[in-house]
Structure formats: C-alpha cells, structure tokens
Design a protein around this nucleic acid. Sequence first.
DNA 1: TAAACTTTGCAATGGCATTGCACTCCTTAA
DNA 2: TTAAGGAGTGCAATGCCATTGCAAAGTTTA
Lengths: 136, 136
Amino acid sequence: MSTLQEEKLENKNIKPTAMRLLVLQCLMEQNRALSLNEIEVLFENADKSTIFRTLKTFQENYLVHRINDGSGAIKYALCDDDCICSLKDNHIHFLCTKCEKTYCLKDTPIATPTLPNGFKANFANYLIEGICSTCT
Amino acid sequence: MSTLQEEKLENKNIKPTAMRLLVLQCLMEQNRALSLNEIEVLFENADKSTIFRTLKTFQENYLVHRINDGSGAIKYALCDDDCICSLKDNHIHFLCTKCEKTYCLKDTPIATPTLPNGFKANFANYLIEGICSTCT
DNA sequence: TAAACTTTGCAATGGCATTGCACTCCTTAA
DNA sequence: TTAAGGAGTGCAATGCCATTGCAAAGTTTA
Ligand SMILES: [Mn+2]
Ligand SMILES: [Mn+2]
Ligand SMILES: [Zn+2]
Ligand SMILES: [Zn+2]
C-alpha cells in the first residue's frame, strides 16, 4: 500500500525520503508554481539547501520544471506524468503582479513562431504578467 | 549640429551627458541586447553603478527595454523610436545558448493567446533559447 | 557668484542560487 | 550481525547580480 506521492516518486525513479514526500505533497496541494522560499516558509523547520537539492533531484527526473518568471526567484511546478521537459512540453506561465503567484497555463499551448533564417529553437519560456482571476 | 546619439536622447527627453552618449552609442553599435556587465567591460574605466543608473534613466524614458533571458543577468536593448513599452511593443527575444548573445526579434510579433477566464495580460516576455545564425 | 539641482564614483547592502563539509541514516555484502 | 559504502541532510559559507547611501564633482539658475 503506497500513497499517491510515493507512487509519483517511484514512477520517476526517485527514492521516496520523508523530505521528498513532503515537498511533493506541498507542490500537489498548492495548484501553482512555488519558489524555494515559499516552500521553505510552509515547512518552517526544514533546511533551505535540502529543499533546494530535493527540487534539483525532482527537476533532473522530470517531476518538476523550473520557471523563470522575472520575479527574482525561480519557481517550481509539477510536470505532467508524461513530461520530459522538451520543447513540446512547454506551456505559458502567468505571473499575477498583484498576488505574485505564478500559474502554469497548461491548456494554453505556445504557438512556436517562425524564426529568422539560421535560428533554431530548443526551448521556449513564454511568460505573461497581469492580473489573475482571483485578484480581478 | 548634433550627433545621432544626441538627437535620440533629446527625443526621449534625456539630458545628454558624456556617459549617456557613450552607453547609447555602445547599444547602437552592438545590434543586440547587452547586460550591465557586458557594457561595463566595453568601457573598462566607467563605474558600474553609473552605467546602471544610466540604463535606468533610459528605461524610464522608453529608450531601452529590459529583457529577462534567464541567463542570470538582465539585458538591455534599444527601443524603437515610437516605443512606449506597452503590450503591443513586446516582441520575442532569442538567447543563443552557444554564444550567450540575446537578440530582439522585432519582426517576429508575439501572438497573444486567449487566457483562461478572469486573467488579464499587461506584459509578455516570450523568450526562445536555441542556436543563433552565426553559431549554426 | 552662490545656491540648488543633477550626475557620478565608491563602498556597502541585500536577495537568491549554489556548494563544501561533516554528520546521520540506509543499504548491502561479507 | 555487523562493518563499509553510499545517499541524504543541516549548517555555514560563497558568489553573483541588482540596487542604494553618501559624498564629491559638475551643471544650471537666480
Ligand atoms: Mn509550468
Ligand atoms: Mn527587445
Ligand atoms: Zn493574483
Ligand atoms: Zn550564437
């Protein structure tokens, strides 16, 4: 009998430690991208570098993706089960300038534009800033 | 008789000091977005905080726009003459992961997607990473 | 010419990501 | 069962970059 978190970790070949289960649970509960700081505050007792390395492990195993939303701190959000963080897994991210929360808009696919001659795309980061639905 | 740089500064209501003329010239010669560090190295003798404040003044007067390309350092690029840095002045930026140079793709407009209900866009930052035409 | 304002240079400060190192915990093989 | 090796964690430091306080230098204005 294993929890949902344990299953998710095993599916991505990550050994389930106490810390990892907690961080994963935290990311699952909040339905948005979280910064290292936000996660640290939610635990209070845990060490920041441990959380950092936890998130690094998650990222290396395609459990989370990093989002640079220009807020100064990198945000982390859960990947879909079948995500391999390739160009086609990319999606738009939305930063609310009022509540500072960042959301994955997974249902809003990125239109990949035609680039000038000789330019080749490997990764896209499409960030939109504005006001989110709860802050309207 | 005034130089091109002086004209540009006056058009944006920026008093043309020696430093400002130099930084502007530098941005005009390099046809791409530059970081504070890159500009500082090009001058060698000038002080970093002075360049920082110069760029801040430029930005406040819509002479340059800031670009967060995820490289860790903010890049600065010249605006078009009629730019007021609004949503429709936004354009795609391209970071070459080989030469680390960032380019404005002003001819590649950003398609603004339809956002979920209640979300309102005020600013967009569409960054594409890949290989540029000279590094191919 | 002197006061007022602007620009510049230098030296902090502060935030965040990242890492070295030692300690603890867990797994494994004799 | 136990000792050795490896993985995970906590703490303290480091490094990079943006930003600011303050005083000196330069410029404008009355
Ligand atoms: Mn996302
Ligand atoms: Mn640009
Ligand atoms: Zn909001
Ligand atoms: Zn290149």
